[in-house]
């Protein structure tokens, strides 16, 4: 059998076309992030207001979801009182449908009390809030709710992980007009409602764990914001029941590659 030259030319053309199509698709560079400057500016104002404050406190009403192994999503409620004083004091009083926690941080020590178990742990930690939050997250695997707001610059981490952001307009949170901002990271979507008039404090935070089964959400509505010149040191000292039992933290360690 003899093929004509035209056949080979056509065959070669098809091959080159297909190969170039494939290689072009493989070599396609990553798209640039689509971050909205308006959202970033408003977010920056909020971070400035919180980061520059010597002390603040707020109350939060929380809703959070759990996806059961049967794929049914259930919602629980909680409430939290959060107090912070720079450089190194923090207190969280948290109770929810499924448990409770009290956390005190001051004088270089952190105490975490679980009222349901009547157990607590105390560990030595760094003297500044930023360093403390990073260390306990790394060493003890401990994070506390809405701790993003406690950092001296709350914007740093969200800006680092955001791949999309948008300004959704002036929307309402319990009667307070707020600038509604939306962000997306690789794994989560998070929305923040920043008070439109007066001090730009966050009034509502919604986090959607988009890549987890059932996309569970965490919703916190923040109120009763206070920015006192000073918060009494007693607020940050452990107030434990007499019969509370002391336990230790399990330490987490990086696995070797």
């Amino acid at each position: 059998m003899i093929f004509r030259p035209a056949f080979y030319r056509t065959l070669l053309a098809i091959f080159l076309l297909t190969a170039s199509w494939g290689s072009a698709a493989m070599a396609e560079p990553a798209k640039p992030p689509a971050l909205d400057p308006a959202a970033d500016k408003l977010f920056g104002n909020m971070c400035e207001a919180l980061g520059s404050a010597n002390a603040f406190s707020f109350h939060a009403e929380v809703l959070f979801e759990q996806v059961l192994p049967s794929a049914v999503k259930v919602q629980y409620a909680g409430a939290m009182d959060f107090s912070l004083q720079r450089p190194g004091e923090l207190a969280v009083n948290y109770r929810s449908d499924t448990g409770a926690k009290e956390l005190w941080y001051g004088d270089g020590k952190l105490t975490l009390f679980d009222p349901r178990y009547d157990m607590y742990a105390t560990i030595a930690v760094p003297g500044t809030i930023d360093a403390m939050l990073d260390e306990v997250a790394q060493k003890q695997g401990l994070t506390m709710p809405l701790s993003d707001l406690a950092f001296s610059n709350p914007c740093v981490r969200p800006r680092k992980i955001a791949i999309y952001s948008g300004y959704m307009g002036v929307n309402d949170v319990n009667g307070v007009p707020c600038d509604h901002l939306a962000f997306s990271s690789a794994d989560n979507d998070f929305q923040i409602w920043v008070q439109h008039s007066g001090k730009p404090v966050p009034r509502k935070i919604v986090i959607n764990h988009r890549t987890e089964p059932g996309s569970p959400e965490y919703i916190a509505v923040l109120s009763d914001w206070k920015f006192p010149a000073e918060i009494s040191a007693t607020r940050f000292q452990p107030d434990l029941p007499r019969d509370a039992k002391r336990i230790e933290f399990l330490k987490v360690k990086e696995s070797k590659p």
């Binding site: 939050l133 709710p145 990271s185």
Partner: peptide, 16 residues
């Protein structure tokens, strides 16, 4: 995640 929800509510800072 699990438990009483105390370790939730973070969008930029994670224990992991």
């Amino acid at each position: 995640r699990g438990g009483d929800g105390f370790d939730r509510g973070n969008f930029g800072h994670s224990r992991f």
